[in-house]
Amino acid sequence: MEKEITLKINGEEYTQKVEPRTLLIHFIRENASLTGSHIGCDTSSCGACTILIDGKSAKSCTILAIQAQGKEITTVEGLATTEGVHPIQEGFKENHGLHCGFCTPGMMLRAVELLEKNPDPTEEEIRWGISGNLCRCTGYNNIVKAIKYAGAKIRGAELPSTEPVFVE
């Protein structure tokens, strides 16, 4: 019952035979050997498997590889270019937006679409925007800061302070 599918991941074309029940996250991690996208809850709750499909953020644990036939996928491995890291990667680095890093690829891909739609989001919009991504280490303050920073970078605006935030 295998079917041949063709899809692009980070610009590279993959043509492979898959069982229809193959989940997109498994195709990305196992068939394409791109292990930056993670499997956390496996129930579309945690967002660790978030990737972009034709620019839209999606949870790849709840999408069949075969549904991505003909689509363009972006994973964390596709964010940086020869020019350097993506603004969102710089934001996470400069603001210490991660601790263990497990949620980070999903957070960043989600933030890429969020900033694409609205490069100047308020804190509330950011928090609603990443409501489908869970971080279990450090909390969300530095992640929110990282996304704000990346937005400023993308807009060409003055970069916000990267000083740590202390919460009473």
Partner: peptide, 12 residues
């Protein structure tokens, strides 16, 4: 819309 699952789920 704001209360259905989360943004990624609402995309699909």
């Amino acid at each position: 819309a704001k209360l259905i699952a989360d943004p990624q789920v609402r995309n699909f």
